[in-house]
Design a protein around this nucleic acid. Structure first.
Lengths: 105, 105
DNA sequence: TTTCTATACCTCGTTATACAAAGTATTATG
DNA sequence: CATAATACTTTGTATAACGAGGTATAGAAA
């Protein structure tokens, strides 16, 4: 998928992935893969960003003698999803215009 | 509107604006304003990009003793719009996921 | 044993893009 | 005479995606 189109979408996809249950980097990449490709060098900075704005939290746990960093969504994170969905109406108008409908349509 | 969400959208909006009839920088900004805000320092680099990939052409014309640079969409430009619309199906699946539907829904 | 694959984390440098700010220049309005 | 509107353009900054590379363990294949 177009790199530019992904901007602003990936953060929300990661948050949506954590909505039902906590997860960790490697699993997030694999779970999202069928829907949207996200590389490691893209995901880890995203997780850092989301931590900084407290949209997620993290807890390291041992699994098979190895450390895994689990991420949990916060209320702020859920709110971000809601805001995004709210804004999406405007994007749909833009797409409608691009597809050939009138602006005031 | 979210800056990141605009990326990849603005180029196509400009092309869509030129689909019916040629136009010039100042008018494009004003015509798109109700739909999507686009500043001068954003539009002019976009027009340059579109010229480089031959998605548009330009012709300077005199209007009220002043030079206006008119831009016309090309077949390549129209093709870009079509490709974008084709790709949009995937984005809609992603939004569906973000809104809370299942990936395989 | 060695090599490859899978698991699991992270960073650096490059590239693309949006945009504020500033600059240039003319015409019309107050 | 000043301000707004018209019309173009460049410079510098911030944000984000991602290839390439690095670290480390475990299990399967050669």
């Amino acid at each position: 998928m177009n790199t530019q189109l992904k901007k602003g979408l990936l953060d929300i996809c990661v948050l949506a992935e954590l909505r039902e249950k906590e997860s960790y980097g490697y699993a997030i990449i694999n779970d999202l893969a069928p829907l949207i490709e996200i590389s490691e060098s893209t995901l880890y900075p995203i997780l850092k960003r989301l931590l900084t704005k407290k949209a997620i939290t993290s807890k390291s746990k041992i699994h098979n003698n190895r450390v895994r960093k689990y991420y949990q969504i916060t209320d702020i994170g859920r709110q971000e999803i809601d805001e995004f969905v709210g804004e999406w109406g405007q994007v749909e108008k833009i797409i409608s215009f691009i597809k050939g409908d009138e602006i005031d349509g």
